[in-house]
Amino acid sequence: MNGQPSVSLSDYQKMVKSRYADKLPGSEYDNKGMSSGYGTAKKTPDASHSTPLPLGGSSAALALAGAGFVLRRRRSTTG
């Protein structure tokens, strides 16, 4: 603190609070989306549309893998 080699814990906590209290979770700074470091956060009206894409992709990959397994098994039993 101000060039001192050591500081008591309570003095350090006071210093940190005075410098960064306005940046803590729930502060106006945080609520505006500035705490992420990427500028103001844009609120999306409905974020639920982003969930089906990964699930759909996973389902498609699983279906393709299953189809490949079935075709490979059929080929080995008929040939």
Rank of each mutant, 00 (worst) to 15 (best):
M1H: 13
M1L: 13
M1C: 11
M1Q: 11
N2D: 14
G3I: 09
G3A: 09
G3D: 10
Q4P: 05
P5G: 12
P5C: 10
V7G: 09
V7K: 14
V7R: 14
S8F: 04
L9T: 12
S10F: 13
S10Y: 11
D11M: 03
D11S: 11
Y12S: 12
Y12L: 15
K14H: 10
M15L: 15
M15W: 15
V16Y: 10
K17F: 10
K17E: 12
K17P: 01
K17N: 10
K17C: 03
K17Y: 10
S18E: 15
S18Y: 09
R19W: 05
R19D: 01
Y20F: 15
A21S: 14
A21Y: 09
D22N: 14
D22F: 13
L24G: 03
L24D: 08
L24Q: 13
P25G: 01
P25Y: 04
P25I: 04
P25V: 04
P25S: 06
G26Q: 00
S27T: 04
E28M: 04
E28N: 06
E28F: 02
Y29P: 01
D30T: 08
D30E: 13
N31M: 11
N31C: 03
K32T: 07
K32E: 14
K32W: 10
G33S: 04
M34I: 02
S35E: 01
S36N: 03
G37L: 02
G37K: 02
Y38M: 07
Y38V: 01
Y38E: 04
G39W: 09
T40H: 11
A41K: 11
A41T: 10
A41D: 00
K43C: 00
K43D: 08
D46C: 09
A47V: 05
A47E: 02
H49L: 05
H49V: 11
H49G: 01
S50N: 01
S50L: 06
T51Q: 07
P52A: 01
L53T: 07
L53R: 06
P54Q: 07
P54L: 10
L55S: 07
L55H: 12
L55V: 11
L55T: 08
G56N: 03
G56F: 05
G57M: 08
G57A: 06
S58C: 07
S58G: 12
S58W: 10
S58V: 08
S59L: 15
A60L: 15
A60F: 14
A61P: 02
A63N: 00
A65V: 14
A65S: 15
G66Q: 10
G66C: 14
A67W: 08
A67P: 01
A67D: 00
G68W: 06
V70Q: 01
V70M: 07
L71K: 06
L71A: 15
R72V: 09
R74N: 06
R74Y: 13
R74F: 12
R75Q: 09
R75P: 00
R75C: 02
R75G: 03
S76M: 05
S76D: 02
T77G: 00
T77Y: 05
T78E: 14
G79N: 02
